[in-house]
Design a protein around this nucleic acid. Structure first.
Length: 488
RNA sequence: CGGGGUGUAGCGCAGAUGGUAGCGUGCUACGUUCGGGACGUAGAGGUCGCAGGUUCAAAUCCUGUCACCCCGACCA
């Protein structure tokens, strides 16, 4: 059994932290709420980044980069935006240190105070729209379809590795359009890309929906999201795509001449996913033995372990397998370490989530086969060397599918439709998961439910059918069900 | 910011009534092992969070301070 991983049943939160540490994804840092992303964790993020980046580019987006620092005054230009972010901004007030005359090391030089303080971006709408003002004069300048890969800082009260850190990595897309319809189409296009990425690459089923006014992004007219359900029954907002209307164009005075030669404010969208996805990936698939990764995002898909040690004859056989696998585009590593014993290695590769392990010993070679172990089910099978690449290629697809189906079955099991307040409370307390229920559409009711139960409306699902019903709290009429859950 | 807790070796911990620091794990070397987290032997590693104070003597007592963790309010 795995050493020193708290079981999910005992303490899900501790299990999560154990996985992050034992699978060598990230370490704590000296800075509160910030983490060091270690090579294995970063490799997973790189896979995500590369896959998403390709999807963005296929749909006509280009990358650019805007500054880390934003003049403080920019933030206040859009009223609800400042309200949303002001209380979690890191502020730069000085630009120089000096030696402490009292011998206490270095201190901030009081004479180096900035004329206008800078904030460290919590998101880049303001500086980007300030820039777009210069770029956009005519409908011919539109659309602008820009994405940036960056770090942002939000001074959160409580943090958890990947799920919520003070500094995090993300991509943020900021697009500008001539019409509302076009901006909305862009918002929806990105939502679809996010959902496709979550399901096809992360093997994490998601619900596409729209946020209620309470949960909406500060400065958006509408916020669309993908919501996933974790193993412990809590929801995770995995990505958001915002229809910004003309809010930022108005705040930053971005006008263009339309085809009718009339001045009009530009329409906008913004959208992002972050390193939080790594946390979602962990909490969707991993188990008490360690990380479980979908093959499409695994930095190494197959590891070959010579048993008991990397003897030359085993290594030359391993090299042949490597060549066959690589020819199929499979990433593979041969374990050439001669210090640790096989059992240790098996446990170690399970811990870091390598999807497929091939055991290669003399016993196998004599029989013309290898031992293939899959991480998701931990099943081991003897497979003939002949055709091994085809077998592994198919196995990786099977694992990818199995992880998705398993997660989807879990979500189905933990999605409950309720029609009364008692059932709502009971399901929330005893079972968790998504609760599909009627709601009267008011912020007041939503906030009251949140206050009473800690559950929030995760989204109004886009595919929710029309259905007459009564709000679980107030009994007022409702025309469709929404999804409630406790969330990360 | 409210309520609770913890700071001692890389990590996890023990050190009653004060006497100058230890266990597990990990690390290094050598040997025996090796098909599911091996074992033996020998080593390296700590200004006990920080600053004062009491004392012949402080990880231990006192004062202050800092940091982190957990529970709430806020959040991708």
């Amino acid at each position: 059994m795995a050493k020193e991983i708290t079981s999910r049943a005992d303490d899900y939160s501790q299990w999560y932290l154990d996985i992050v540490r034992k699978a060598r994804l990230a370490d704590n840092s000296p800075v509160r709420g910030c983490m060091v992303i270690k090579p294995h964790g970063f490799a997973i993020w790189e896979k995500m980044r590369d896959s998403l980046d390709a999807m963005f580019k296929e749909t006509g987006h280009v990358n650019a980069y805007f500054p880390l620092f934003i003049p403080k005054s920019f933030l206040s230009k859009e009223a609800s935006h400042v309200e949303g972010f002001a209380k979690e901004c890191a502020v730069v007030t000085h630009y120089r240190l000096k030696n402490d005359p009292n011998g206490g090391g270095v201190i901030v030089d009081p004479e180096a105070k900035l004329e206008e303080e800078l904030i460290v971006r919590p998101t880049s709408e303001t500086i980007i729209w300030h820039t777009y003002k210069d770029w956009i004069k005519s409908y011919r300048d539109l659309p602008i379809l820009i994405n940036q890969w960056a770090n942002v800082v939000r001074w959160e009260m409580r943090t958890r590795p990947f799920l919520r850190t003070t500094e995090f990595l993300w991509q943020e897309g900021h697009t500008a359009h001539a019409t509302a319809e076009e901006a909305m189409a862009e918002t929806r296009l990105i939502l679809d890309i996010y959902a496709r990425f979550a399901e096809e690459y992360m093997a994490m089923p998601v619900i596409k929906g729209v946020k209620t006014a309470n949960e909406r992004f500060a400065g958006a007219d509408d916020t669309f999201c993908i919501e996933a359900l974790m193993q412990d029954g809590k929801a995770l907002q995995a990505g958001t795509s915002h229809f910004l209307g003309q809010n930022f164009a108005k705040a930053f005075d971005v006008l263009f001449l339309n085809k009718e030669n009339q001045q009009e404010h530009v329409w906008a969208s913004s959208w992002g996913v972050s390193t939080r996805l790594v946390g979602g990936l962990i909490m969707t698939h991993s188990d008490d033995d360690g990380l479980v990764l979908p093959p499409k995002l695994a930095p190494v898909q197959v590891v070959i372990v010579p048993i008991p040690k990397p003897f030359p004859e085993l290594l030359s056989e391993a090299d042949k397998i490597v060549a066959q696998l690589r020819a199929k585009g499979i990433s593979v590593k041969v374990d050439t370490d001669d210090q640790n014993r096989p059992g240790f290695k098996f446990a170690e590769y399970e811990m870091i989530g390598v999807p497929v392990r091939i055991g290669l010993g003399q016993r196998d070679l004599d029989a013309g086969q290898v031992e293939v172990a899959r991480r998701d089910t931990k099943e081991k099978t003897s497979v003939p060397l002949e055709g091994i690449a085809e077998y592994v290629d198919q196995l990786l697809r099977d694992i990818q599918d199995n992880l998705f189906n398993r997660a989807k079955a879990h979500r189905t099991e933990y999605t409950t439709a309720v029609d009364t307040w008692d059932d709502f409370v009971s399901v929330l307390e005893n079972k968790g998961g998504f609760i599909s229920a009627h709601w009267d559409g008011t912020s007041e009711t939503e906030l009251k439910i949140k206050e009473m139960t800690k559950a929030t409306i995760r989204c109004i699902p886009l595919d929710a059918p029309e259905e007459q019903g009564a709000c679980i709290l107030t009994g007022k009429p409702s025309s469709q069900r929404v999804l409630f859950a406790k969330a990360y």
